[in-house]
Amino acid sequence: MRHYFQFGRFGFNLTTPGGKALVMGILNVTPDSFSDGGQFQSLEFALARAEQMLADGVDIIDIGGESSRPGAPQLSLQEELRRVMPVLYALRDCGKPLSVDTYKPEVMREAILAGADMINDINAFRAPGAISAVRDSDCALCIMHMQNAPETMQRQPDYVDVVREVSDFLRRRVEELTAAGIERERLCIDLGYGFGKTVEHNYALLKASGQIRAELGLPMLAGLSRKSMLGAVTGKPVEQRLAGSLAGALAAVAHGADLIRVHDVAETVDALSVWRAAH
Rank of each mutant, 00 (worst) to 15 (best):
M1I: 15
M1V: 15
M1A: 13
Y4M: 11
Y4T: 10
Q6F: 11
G8T: 02
L14I: 14
K20T: 15
K20G: 08
L22Y: 05
L22A: 01
M24W: 04
M24D: 06
L27V: 04
T30N: 07
D32S: 09
Q41I: 14
R49H: 13
Q52E: 15
M53F: 08
V58F: 06
V58K: 04
I61Q: 06
I63A: 03
G65Y: 06
S67G: 01
A72C: 09
R82E: 13
R83P: 06
R83H: 13
M85W: 13
P86A: 07
V87E: 00
L91N: 12
C94L: 13
P105Y: 06
V107R: 07
M108R: 11
A111K: 10
A116C: 15
A116T: 11
A116Y: 13
N120S: 12
D121W: 02
I122M: 05
I122F: 06
A127D: 08
A130M: 01
V134G: 04
R135W: 15
A140V: 01
Q147N: 11
A149M: 09
P150L: 02
P150E: 00
E151I: 06
E151S: 13
M153C: 05
R155M: 00
Q156A: 04
P157I: 09
P157Y: 08
P157Q: 12
D158I: 06
D161N: 08
V163C: 14
V163Y: 08
R164K: 02
E165M: 03
D168L: 12
R173D: 07
R173Y: 07
L177T: 10
L177F: 14
T178I: 15
I182A: 10
R186S: 03
D190M: 14
Y193E: 01
F195D: 07
V199Q: 04
E200T: 04
H201V: 11
N202F: 10
N202Q: 12
A204H: 12
L205K: 11
L205Y: 11
S209M: 14
G210A: 14
I212W: 07
A214E: 12
A222H: 06
G223A: 14
S225W: 03
M229D: 01
A232M: 10
P237R: 04
P237G: 05
E239D: 00
Q240C: 02
R241H: 01
L242W: 14
G244Q: 05
A247G: 06
A249L: 14
A252P: 05
A252G: 06
A252R: 04
V253D: 05
H255G: 02
H255S: 04
L259N: 05
R261T: 10
H263S: 06
D264V: 08
V265A: 07
V265L: 07
A266E: 15
A266P: 13
D270E: 15
D270I: 07
D270W: 14
V274N: 08
H279Y: 14
